[in-house]
C-alpha cells in the first residue's frame, strides 16, 4: 500500500494504530450544529467506519475504523456537513482541508446561556472564515463571559466576552443585589455611595453579574460587543502555562486582525527545523521577545477607544 500520509493528514484523516485504517476528523467551528448532521455522521460511521464516533476535545467528531480506500467516499458524504457548517474548503467534494490550525472552539454562548455576552459560535465561524485552511499551529477558543467555561486561557488566543455595564441611577432602588452579586460571584468592585451604586471601572471584568442581578433594569449591557483577549496559553510537554491578558475591552475586528497579523509573525520567525513544521507560538515569542510580537500583532490595528493594552506581558507556568 502506498499512501502519502502528509496529504492524508491535510485532508483531515488520521494515521491510526491499525495499518490501512484511518479516522475521519470532522470539525465543528464554534461547536454548535444542526442536529440533522448527526444522522449524516451516523451514516458514515455505520457505512464506512466501525459504527462508533468519538467526540473530540476540540468540538469535533472523529469517525474511526475507515479503510484508506474509502476516504474519497467518506469525503463525498461529508460535503453537506462542510457546506452547512460554512467550512472554508479548497475543492468541493474533497473533504475537509486541515492541518496546523485547530478547530475554533466555543462555549455554548448566548444562544443558550444567560451569562454569555455574545454569540460565541457566530464569532467562531467568523474567525474560521478568516483563517482557514492554514498549516500553522494556532489554537483559538471563545468563551461567553469571564467564567471561562471554554478554558480559553489554555489557547494561543483566548476570547472572553465582556459587557460594559451601563448604570441608570434613576432606576436604582438601592436593593443591594448588584453589590452583593459582584462581591460574591465576581471581583467586588461595586459599592454603595449615597444609596446609589458606584463601579470601580478600572477593575471591572465585564462579567455582567450586576446586570443579571438587577431586579429593576437599572443595570443594562453596553451597546458595543467587547472582549478580553488572552495570549499564548498552552498545554504540551515543555512548559505548559495559562494565557495572559493582552487587551481588554477590545472589539471583534481588532481581534481578527491581530490573529491574522500573528500568522505573518509566525511565518517570519518559526523555527525552520520545527518537527512537522509546527511550533507553539509561545516558544517563538519567548525567542523574539514580547515587544517584537506586539509590533507585528498590532500592525495597522485600529483599536477602539475602550481598549486597554497590557504591556509588557509575562507568562508563568510549569517548566520542565
Amino acid at each position: 500500500m502506498d499512501t502519502n500520509t502528509k496529504l492524508l493528514k491535510k485532508n483531515a484523516f488520521r494515521v491510526t494504530k491499525v495499518r490501512g485504517v484511518t479516522a475521519s476528523r470532522v470539525r465543528v467551528p464554534g461547536g454548535h450544529l444542526k442536529a440533522e448532521y448527526l444522522s449524516l455522521l451516523q451514516n458514515i460511521a455505520e457505512t464506512y467506519g466501525n459504527g462508533t464516533v468519538h467526540i473530540t476535545n476540540r468540538q469535533g467528531f472523529e469517525i474511526p475504523g475507515i479503510a484508506f480506500a474509502n476516504m474519497p467516499a467518506v469525503n463525498e458524504l461529508l460535503q453537506p456537513i462542510i457546506e452547512g457548517l460554512g467550512i472554508n474548503q479548497q475543492e468541493s467534494g474533497k473533504g475537509y482541508s486541515a492541518a496546523g490550525t485547530r478547530n475554533v472552539v466555543a462555549c455554548v454562548g448566548n444562544r443558550v446561556c444567560p451569562f454569555a455576552c455574545y454569540d460565541t459560535t457566530a464569532f467562531a465561524q467568523r474567525i474560521e472564515k478568516a483563517i482557514f485552511p492554514n498549516d500553522l499551529h494556532f489554537k483559538i477558543a471563545l468563551t461567553g463571559c469571564p467564567n471561562d467555561c471554554a478554558k480559553v486561557r489554555m489557547h494561543d488566543f483566548g476570547i472572553m466576552g465582556m459587557t460594559e455595564p451601563q448604570y441608570n441611577k434613576d432606576r436604582c432602588v438601592n436593593c443591594g443585589a448588584c453589590v452583593k452579586a459582584c462581591e460574591r460571584k465576581s471581583v467586588g468592585i461595586l459599592s454603595e455611595v449615597n444609596y446609589k451604586v458606584e463601579r470601580y471601572a478600572d477593575k471591572c471584568i465585564g462579567c455582567g453579574e450586576c446586570v443579571l442581578a438587577c431586579p429593576v433594569g437599572a443595570w443594562t449591557r453596553g451597546e458595543q460587543k467587547l472582549y478580553r483577549l488572552t495570549l499564548l496559553g498552552r498545554s504540551g510537554k515543555k512548559n505548559p502555562r495559562l494565557g495572559e491578558d493582552f487587551i481588554k475591552w477590545v472589539d471583534e475586528d481588532s481581534i481578527i486582525k491581530i490573529i491574522l497579523n500573528t500568522y505573518g509573525y509566525v511565518q517570519q520567525y518559526i523555527d525552520p527545523n520545527a518537527p512537522g513544521g509546527k511550533e507553539h507560538i509561545g516558544y517563538i515569542v519567548d525567542r523574539t521577545g514580547f515587544e517584537e510580537f506586539k509590533k507585528w500583532a498590532l500592525k495597522d490595528v485600529q483599536l477602539p477607544e475602550t481598549a486597554e493594552v497590557y504591556t509588557p506581558v509575562y507568562w508563568k507556568g510549569v517548566k520542565y
Partner: peptide, 15 residues
Amino acid sequence: RMAGGGPYSDTDSIQ
C-alpha cells in the same frame, strides 16, 4: 422596545 435592554445579551426589553 428597548433594543438590547434585556438582562441577557442580545435581548430586548419591553418597558
